[in-house]
């Protein structure tokens, strides 16, 4: 799925990375625990999380994750933008709960990592 389609499915707000919306994503992983995210070794992954702090962005940087969806109306905070921009990430805010967002993404064809 293209990130552009993911944004449509989630009625999301693209905070950063408009220019990368044509990139493909295949897998989704939902967690507020960054150590769990760091156990993954999956490319073309979307991280779905309610954790909106700098460590979310750092975790994505270390794990080579290029797209993050923030659920539950969590907002991307200014300090997160600089690092995300440097690593060409797409940051998307969405109003759904984590469960609601995942259900929609799964219906749209995004696969679980395991």
């Amino acid at each position: 799925m293209k990130i552009e389609n993911l944004v449509d499915v989630l009625d999301g707000n693209v905070v950063m990375g408009e220019e990368f919306l044509q990139k493909e994503v295949l897998f989704g992983f939902a967690s507020d625990l960054m150590s769990d995210v760091l156990t993954l070794d999956t490319d073309k992954l979307v991280l779905v999380t309610g954790l909106n702090n700098l460590q979310t962005i750092r975790t994505a940087e270390m794990a080579d994750i290029e797209c993050i969806v923030f659920v539950r109306n969590k907002r991307v905070l200014p300090p997160m933008l600089e690092i995300a921009s440097e690593h060409e990430m797409v940051l998307i805010e969405c109003r759904f709960s984590m469960f609601g967002a995942i259900a929609r993404l799964h219906d749209a064809g995004l696969k679980p990592v395991y």
Binding site: L33, M34, S35, L38, T39, L51, N53, Q55, T56
Partner: peptide, 10 residues
């Protein structure tokens, strides 16, 4: 824990 760590996974 609020930063997304501290679950004994590190």
């Amino acid at each position: 824990r609020e930063m997304g760590f501290g679950a004994g996974m590190g």
